[in-house]
Design a protein around this nucleic acid. Sequence first.
DNA 1: TCAAAAGTGTTTGTTATACACCCATGT
DNA 2: ACATGGGTGTATAACAAACACTTTTGA
Lengths: 242, 242
Amino acid sequence: MSETNHRYSAHVEPSFTPKNVIKSLSIDNLIFGLDHGKLDILLVKHKVGLSKGQWALPGGFIRHDENLRDAASRHLHELTGVTDLYLEQLKTFGRVDRFPSERVITVAYYALVSAEDYKLVAGNNASDACWFGIHELPELIFDHKEIVDFGIQHLQQQVRRRPIGFNLLPEKFTLLQLQELYEGILDTKLDKPNFRRKIMKMNLLTSCEEKQTGVAHRAAKLYRFDEQAYQALTEKGFSFEI
Amino acid sequence: MSETNHRYSAHVEPSFTPKNVIKSLSIDNLIFGLDHGKLDILLVKHKVGLSKGQWALPGGFIRHDENLRDAASRHLHELTGVTDLYLEQLKTFGRVDRFPSERVITVAYYALVSAEDYKLVAGNNASDACWFGIHELPELIFDHKEIVDFGIQHLQQQVRRRPIGFNLLPEKFTLLQLQELYEGILDTKLDKPNFRRKIMKMNLLTSCEEKQTGVAHRAAKLYRFDEQAYQALTEKGFSFEI
DNA sequence: TCAAAAGTGTTTGTTATACACCCATGT
DNA sequence: ACATGGGTGTATAACAAACACTTTTGA
């Protein structure tokens, strides 16, 4: 893990730049997680370099023989151990003065990490990787705050149009968990009966024929997201709207 | 104009690469225009280099002291003479093998060119710049076809959610022109009465208190898009949906 | 007077919203 | 028994879709 941070920090001090990577171009990952209905972002703390001690988005350089998404994936994997994520390009940030001393343009990717993986990341031996609530972010390096702000806005838009939010939940979830997820991301309150109906009418959830356990109230049914049904519907021009 | 093409073609043969630009990173512009309800794209023909004689998106390299959008803007201006456009980042394309012989990643921007500017471009002395209907595109260089396909899809999504389509029309336009624009982009037929009502209810159009002239039927009222009303509405959380 | 597009009205079915209500379960 | 969330029902209003209709104008 320290190797990863070394590699990233390298990107602050050119002398640390690993070989076989593209100059002037980096990757930064915006990783969202969900903690009890609160939206979090994963940050790392730089260990060396000019920006030592400062928080930043996890990222790094791109190898010459590596596709952009693969680079994003690799950096994410090296840091968190998580693979097979919903990982999408967000935007490329290239302000002339965004990086000190030399021109570096960064391609930002974003990912949504499920509740299980959320714990995995937190329990990782990368003691300098940490989740922060989006309303309690520390000072960030470079233009990373700008990337975060853009990403949150983007997520709020995307989550209304595509069922990507499910990636933030465990495999089996209740309808209330799903509702709280949407409330957390969109920062609003939703009407329970109406939300349930809207979701159920889409036929995107499969009942697990199971119920919650260990709760001090009537146990809710557990559902799982039906990827195939979604694929089938999108091919028919289906539009997902919350 | 030949200078522009020289500059762009440079991007094919590294030996032509101008000084003071970033290596391994280029800009490509996807420029949409409207011709009688038909959606067009602006292409240029390379005059020198490996890809001589082939059609490509107008683009080029980024100067070290130049922001990304400024670079996109500059290349567009140099080629078409058009300024002050709706010009947005589309996506960054970076497949390892997208460019022959060396690694070049490109940031794609897109713009919508109004009917007036459309003529301006066509009448320009850049004899190797030409509009093509999106269904009649020639073979394109590198991964430019991929960029075009992505851009068309993106435009179809964006145009439904934000009133960017107005950029493709002249300043004063009729409701039928607007409807034909949407039909052209979305590749569907829309119901006239319903379309009119939907648009008018948004209060985004100002009447010019003027009518069409020179038409062989009842003259339609001319409208203009009210930018201020749109700004005011978006701040209130207004959502534009066609 | 006819074609062509401008522009209005109305009917019908669907969907959104708000809110009242009953159900199940652990403490 | 009661608090807590699970889950259903329904009245109302807003909206979308389809389509019939009247108006204006140049040729």
